[in-house]
Amino acid sequence: MKIETKTLYEQDFYRWIETTVNLLQEGRWTEIERENLIEELISMGKSERNALKSNLRVLLMHLLKYQYEPERRSNSWLYTIFEHRKRIQDSLQDSPSLKRYLEEVFEECYKNARKEASLETGLTKDKFPLNSPFSIDEVLDEDFLPV
């Protein structure tokens, strides 16, 4: 008896996941609704990449704020730097292949972080360097803080 997982996918996503996992564990390959499974796996990959980019952008923005507004430094900024650095490190530990992706999007994330830092601080965008003053290694280094 074939389980109608496509209908289940549309009606109860979590139940579809449970059912699909059970079918995979039992080796019942022909009963798996492959199209939705493929779509979800692709979506998971995109989510991982988007989370990495988001965390990198927030981290870069706070490193810029930390460097260019020393008089406003706070424990909250330090916590944000620590938290987003840790999230990136966790992502890279779980999925080392994301390191290559981080390298690919680093400059794009910096450009967005530069704009966000400008908006958040009220400083004009030209106050921040056009290219990242931080290397990837510095950004990921838990002990690094700009001067």
Rank of each mutant, 00 (worst) to 15 (best):
residue 111 K to C: 07
residue 43 S to Y: 08
residue 141 D to L: 08
residue 118 S to F: 09
residue 113 A to W: 04
residue 74 S to D: 04
residue 127 K to V: 15
residue 134 F to S: 00
residue 37 L to K: 01
residue 133 P to E: 10
residue 133 P to L: 11
residue 76 S to R: 04
residue 65 K to P: 09
residue 93 Q to H: 13
residue 43 S to P: 01
residue 68 Y to M: 10
residue 89 Q to W: 02
residue 122 G to A: 13
residue 91 S to I: 06
residue 135 S to Y: 06
residue 47 S to Y: 07
residue 44 M to H: 04
residue 59 L to T: 05
residue 142 E to A: 04
residue 123 L to T: 11
residue 25 Q to M: 12
residue 60 L to Q: 14
residue 58 V to G: 07
residue 86 K to H: 14
residue 68 Y to N: 08
residue 90 D to N: 15
residue 132 S to Q: 03
residue 78 L to Y: 04
residue 131 N to Y: 05
residue 143 D to C: 06
residue 87 R to L: 07
residue 115 K to S: 15
residue 76 S to G: 02
residue 142 E to F: 06
residue 32 I to V: 15
residue 86 K to G: 10
residue 77 W to I: 02
residue 34 R to N: 05
residue 95 S to G: 04
residue 142 E to V: 12
residue 52 L to V: 13
residue 90 D to S: 15
residue 128 F to I: 04
residue 120 E to Y: 12
residue 70 P to Q: 02
residue 94 D to G: 10
residue 25 Q to F: 05
residue 58 V to Q: 06
residue 45 G to V: 04
residue 53 K to P: 01
residue 110 Y to P: 13
residue 110 Y to R: 07
residue 42 I to Y: 09
residue 106 F to M: 00
residue 44 M to A: 05
residue 60 L to Y: 07
residue 64 L to I: 13
residue 80 T to L: 04
residue 97 S to V: 11
residue 47 S to V: 05
residue 81 I to L: 03
residue 40 E to F: 03
residue 113 A to C: 11
residue 85 R to E: 01
residue 50 N to H: 11
residue 139 V to E: 01
residue 76 S to C: 03
residue 66 Y to G: 07
residue 99 K to I: 06
residue 127 K to M: 13
residue 69 E to C: 11
residue 82 F to W: 09
residue 46 K to E: 15
residue 93 Q to V: 06
residue 124 T to M: 08
